[in-house]
Design a protein around this nucleic acid. Structure first.
Lengths: 145, 145
DNA sequence: GCTTGACCTAAACTTATGTTGAGGTTGTAG
DNA sequence: CTACAACCTCAACATAAGTTTAGGTCAAGC
């Protein structure tokens, strides 16, 4: 049950390369303790962490954001199902937004690419964020039409 | 109408940095001709090309794929609305697939992260592509459960 | 007790998508 | 005609997410 895992075993079980596990550890996404001979050993919760990392990545979440989410898990005790559920809920909202955004793009894509305007300030597709409305760095319309 | 554009003008009109325009040219996404003094000049079609590049990027298409699509435009004549329409149609299909994929992920996310399995071979979310079904390189389940 | 496979670290390399900087040239407004 | 903004090239740097390589250590079976 509460057995220990070597890197090689975790790699085989999780489908992630050993080098990636080293990298995740350096990045603070997973932790290991060491044997007397300095080899890594993992608790079984590492399998779930790695699985969550992979799924979140598939969804398009960066390792930095994944790390922030994992850091929100409780210290000291093994995360419960509710803990994991709270974690995924935030990502779900994010996903909903991105799906909505993609749909909008899809619906505008053909029309707008064909329409002839594609103007940075007038095209609904290009001007998604109402660029002219907010100040900030970056190029702006410099040539007045 | 058929006026020429300098890099700076294209940058201002398109909202893309001069360095990015240089980069796009090196990457074969746009073309320029040169003045006697070796400065770039663009035809007005460059504005549309850049606009299409930006929109496609927003949609998540890589520059390599964008280049392939742009290469399919007719040589010699200015692309018509239909040409642009055909180009966007392929991307639209792609987008449809990605939207469907994201929806599937969203619907599986909360349940699966909470469910306790997350097994690389049994979890529906992790085993999207029926990993055990195809041969090829990469780690596979080495420890039999 | 030795061989072999699994493990260790550190640094360099990879790809994509650009940006930044150095050092030099062009073009235009006054 | 001179100053200065805009342009040129080439090379190095930046970031994410790892992989690869080199050189060395550990542990398990024969």
């Amino acid at each position: 049950m509460a057995r220990e895992w070597t890197v090689g075993e975790v790699a085989a079980r999780s489908g992630v390369a050993v080098s990636a596990l080293h990298f995740y550890e350096r990045s603070g996404l997973i932790r290991s303790y060491r044997t007397a001979g300095n080899q890594r050993r993992y608790g079984s919760d590492v399998l779930r962490r790695v699985a969550v990392i992979k799924v979140a990545q598939d969804v398009g979440i960066s390792l930095a954001d994944i790390r922030a989410a994992l850091d929100s898990l409780p210290e000291g005790r093994t995360p419960t199902r509710d803990d994991w559920g709270r974690l995924s809920a935030g990502w779900r909202d994010d996903l909903d937004k991105r799906i909505a955004q993609l749909k909008k793009l899809r619906d505008g894509l053909t029309d707008c690419i064909g329409c002839g305007c594609m103007s940075i300030d007038r095209c609904p597709l290009r001007n998604k964020e109402d660029r002219l409305g907010h100040d900030g760095p970056g190029p702006r319309r410099l040539v007045v039409p």
